[in-house]
Design a protein around this nucleic acid. Structure first.
Length: 431
DNA sequence: TCTGGGGTCCTAGGACCC
DNA sequence: TCTGGGGTCCTAGGACCC
């Protein structure tokens, strides 16, 4: 059996931790750049505020109902996520069973094969209660024979919080049937907008229960090949999406951002790309890897002075490195060379980013014919920079090419304090 | 005026090799 | 007139996830 634990309205719940006055009030959290709404409390959902809705379209509604609006505060969410995950690992004896897979910032799968069936309900309730007690974050728990089905259970638990107590265990055929009949195919984990439409319009399949009864060969043909076959098997309770190793390394690392406002000059774009590259290189070093290739991309939207329309043009350039490296200075040099080769004067740039590929473990670096020494001469320096930036303050030490002006920097006008990760922003009681 | 960011997996097709 | 077979590696593109 598998459990999925999912934090309820995670970002909003984090914001509420230091704002108890908002406990029963509608709260939303915005994406980077304060662009759109990416987390909502139940109260906000009830007001008809949609997931992913652009802020400028929702402003009137937010104001009318006095909704608390926050820019995203990833320092806070990342730290709270760690606390929740640590709690789960503790409660499940993860050190012994290696049964916790952190799936995203607010979700974790837990393999429960070592627990007897009759213990599941109580176990799930304990997870919910202790996580809340220790971190203040409310969670929902779904338990079922496969990951896809545990997601089904979790969704139903969350939909009817009062009735379910945010816990649902699907451990018998009747419960599974009821749950699947109540689940629209579009709400299945792994069925996106495209497939949902196809299933409904072309085949008249509307519920998870109907989909479960389709033949695997049909799924192989019309539902994304092997992916579709797995979906059918998972719905039938045959687990085939296995637990992932927590030590697995990313195969691709990217950093990209919309610019706070459109950018026209080469200097600003180079600063932005240099900053993104530093950030990506840090991620690379954190997982003890080196990158073998780098891609830079920019997104332009029309030309200077033209009237507004959203018609983004992606341009990207790829460069295989002579030998894999995690050295920020080499990566930045390469990235900036690519930027120069793709820049066009008079173009309005709205977004940019970089992508590191060909990732290998740092200790497997091979020398090549043309570079006598392996390209890690700066490893000590990189480590020092990472340590300083981690413990003191972001970007205390940075490469000059990252610039100081930052007129491409994103907007975050309503960010709360980083109360759990910055001494200077500790929570204070007023009076 | 304004619409996120960072990933994964799979498949097809081209380049190249022996 | 006839023109192999089997493989790897890489990239692009599509679909999906939170």
């Amino acid at each position: 059996m598998y459990a999925i634990i999912d934090c309820n309205s995670f970002y909003c719940s984090c914001e509420r931790l230091f704002r108890p006055d908002l406990r029963h009030k509608p709260v939303v959290v915005l994406s980077n750049n304060d662009g759109c709404i990416i987390s909502r409390t139940d109260e906000a959902k009830k007001l008809g505020i949609d997931m992913g809705a652009p802020l400028f379209e929702s402003r009137a509604l937010l104001k009318q109902h006095d909704v608390a609006v926050f820019s995203s505060n990833y320092h806070l969410y990342g730290d709270m996520s760690m606390r929740v995950m640590d709690t789960l690992r503790f409660l499940t004896d993860d050190a012994i069973y290696h049964c916790v897979e952190v799936y995203s910032v607010d979700e974790a799968f837990i393999n429960l094969d070592h627990l007897p069936a009759e213990a599941l309900q109580g176990f799930a309730e304990r997870l919910r209660d202790v996580v809340f007690m220790w971190t203040g974050i409310p969670v929902s728990v779904g338990i079922a024979p496969s990951k896809v089905l545990s997601k089904v259970a979790n969704r139903l638990a969350k939909k009817d919080k009062k009735g379910s107590g945010c816990v649902m265990v699907l451990d018998n055929e009747d419960a599974l049937q009821l749950a699947m009949e109540a689940t629209d195919v579009s709400d299945l984990w792994g069925i996106g907008r495209r497939y949902a439409r196809k299933l409904k319009e072309d085949y008249g399949i509307n519920t998870a229960w109907q989909l479960k009864h389709m033949p695997q060969e049909w799924a192989r043909k019309y539902l994304g090949g092997i992916v579709g076959v797995r979906m059918i098997r998972e719905l039938n309770g045959h687990s085939c999406i296995l637990m992932r190793d927590p030590l697995e390394k990313k195969k691709m690392i990217s950093t990209s951002r919309m610019f706070g406002k459109p950018v026209f000059d080469l200097i600003s774009i180079k600063e932005a790309i240099a900053t993104f590259t530093s950030r990506a290189a840090e991620k690379l070093r954190r997982q003890h890897s080196a990158a073998g290739s780098i891609s830079v991309f920019v997104v332009s939207n029309g030309i200077s002075g033209a009237s507004y329309s959203y018609d983004p043009q992606y341009i990207n350039r790829y460069f295989p490195l002579m030998s894999p490296t995690a050295d920020t200075s080499i990566l930045i040099r390469t990235a900036l060379f690519l930027v120069e080769s793709m820049y066009r004067e008079g173009t309005k740039y709205v977004k940019g980013g970089i992508l590191l590929g060909g990732i290998v473990p740092e200790n497997s670096l091979q020398g090549d014919l043309f570079s006598s020494a392996i390209n890690n001469g700066n490893q000590g320096l990189m480590k020092t920079i990472d340590n300083i930036n981690f413990s003191m303050r972001d970007d205390m030490v940075k490469f000059a090419s990252s610039g100081l002006s930052r007129n491409w920097k994103m907007r975050q006008e309503m960010r709360s304090k980083r109360s759990t990760t910055r001494w200077g922003e500790l929570f204070e009681l007023s009076n």
